[in-house]
């Protein structure tokens, strides 16, 4: 047989890559929860801050004398206008950066733990692309799940706190469209962060060689 007739290994489809990766994601659920917790907390914080901001703005716009007293008691400057609080923006950005670094760190540890597994998969015929995809899928699924959970927690806490502070005024002045827009922002931010965090670990995982399957002792 000459080299010319050796075919090139074909890449398996995304759907099949997802099916293969899903077993690992499902059975590593508790480990995934820890990786997810960073995303959940950061996105919950982002959602809470945005939703509270939406609610307070809607209540200020209602311009009710009793409500204005309640708002001032809660520490809201009702004459400040709609400009975002710089300190809050900084806090949100920092929390998101911490979340990004957290996911990258967890996934890099996962690559180190699974060098043997990656080497074995390559011995069985997996291409670099499959390894990249499986890490990408795992990180994205964790990130999206964490983002959705973070949105739910952030929204629930924000509505709970707002109801405690402003009682029945919330139901009458709930800014549904602003809240939906804020949730969309949180979902997009969390998903993008998770996908971005997956790039480096996936690339490092794919560079592992089949011979690594033999070298590492358990």
């Amino acid at each position: 047989m000459s080299n010319a007739v050796i075919p090139e290994q074909r890449q398996v489809s995304w759907a099949v890559s997802f099916q293969v990766s899903w077993a690992g994601i499902r059975r590593r659920f508790f480990r995934s929860l820890i990786t997810m917790s960073g995303v959940v907390l950061a996105i919950a914080f982002l959602t809470y801050m945005q939703v509270m901001n939406d609610v307070v703005r809607a209540l200020v716009r209602a311009d009710d004398a009793v409500l204005n007293v309640l708002l001032q008691q809660a520490g809201v400057d009702i004459y400040a206008g709609d400009a975002p609080d710089r300190m809050m923006v900084l806090l949100i950005v920092l929390s998101l950066l911490a979340c990004l670094v957290g996911i990258i760190n967890s996934m890099l540890m996962s690559v180190t733990e699974r060098i043997k597994e990656i080497g074995t998969l390559k011995c069985l015929g997996a291409l670099d692309g499959f390894i990249v995809r499986s890490y990408f899928i795992e990180s994205s699924v964790q990130g999206v799940a964490g983002t959705v959970l973070g949105c739910v927690i952030g929204l629930a806490v924000a509505i709970g706190v707002a109801t405690t502070n402003y009682h029945g005024y919330i139901a009458a002045n709930l800014p549904v469209f602003s809240i939906l827009r804020s949730l969309t922002t949180s979902l997009t931010t969390g998903t993008l962060l998770s996908v971005m965090a997956a790039i480096l670990p996936a690339y490092i995982a794919a560079r592992k060689q089949p011979v690594d399957a033999m070298r590492v002792e358990e």
Partner: peptide
């Protein structure tokens, strides 16, 4: 091509089995 050879022409057995635990 090497991946094709490893997949179709060779089968590997390891001392510590190297099964995917999940």
């Amino acid at each position: 091509q090497l991946a094709w050879i490893r997949c179709h022409k060779m089968g590997y057995i390891f001392q510590s089995f190297n099964l995917i635990q999940t």
